[in-house]
Amino acid sequence: MVSQAARAGDSAKKGAANRKVKLSVRNLTIRYGDVVALNNANLDIYENEVMGVIGPANSGKTSFLNAINRMSDMRSNMTVEGEITFNGVNIRDWRNVYALRSRIGVVFPLPVGLPMTIYDNVTLSPRLRGITDKRVLDETVERCLTRAALWDEVKDRLNHLGSMLSGGQQQRLTIARALSQDPDLLMLDEFSIAVDPVTTMRIEDVLKELKSQMTIILVTNLVQQANRLADRTSFFLNGEHVETGETEALFEGRTQDQRTRDYIEGRFG
């Protein structure tokens, strides 16, 4: 446990000496009932970086995102121990969990187009925050859908139901919705599962652009996607945070743990 914390600190020194910590995770343990999904994880995520999170299925990656978003509040069987600090404040000290979540955009692997029009899907978040100016909302819709590489396909039918789009389109709609929050932190969980490779590339380009405006956590099952996009990469395995390091270093084989290297080189998982 100490060594992990130290490791996280290590890479902080090595990689980006003076960078501001956006999200700091200490001794994080997540359980569903008696089942441990993530055990004692320690890592820091810096402002304006893309943090790749890789690892086989059931490694605790998605639970990790859910804990950051405090979705455990909504699930009676999910318990979270340890500390997550966002913008310097322990997320548990936020009295208004909704304000916390509105600063964090999430895209989950199963696309969810809400059963309302495409326009309403994208403007829901601004409207919830009290924005009613039609021009602002129109602008948000075009900007977010364009960034999510969906605008050209749906611009002529913004009044169609978002839940009736194809899987890939719904996934991009979900991304557009997350972007409409103007989040500080954007968490994407295997977003490319339902999207074709060409669109994936377009979205990846957008993510590179967005990096200057927000911090991004990119959970991915595609090791090469982490290599393409992430500044640093974390490896999770069976509920354990194995290590975090500079992406370049990890992919050149300079890992601290043999298992990370094996996974990256495709020897298992």
Binding site: F86, N87, R95
Partner: peptide, 18 residues
Amino acid sequence: ITAATTAEAAGDRLDKNW
């Protein structure tokens, strides 16, 4: 870090919606 930023500054307000 905690000293430098309070929850309030980070955006934690019990707003109308809450």
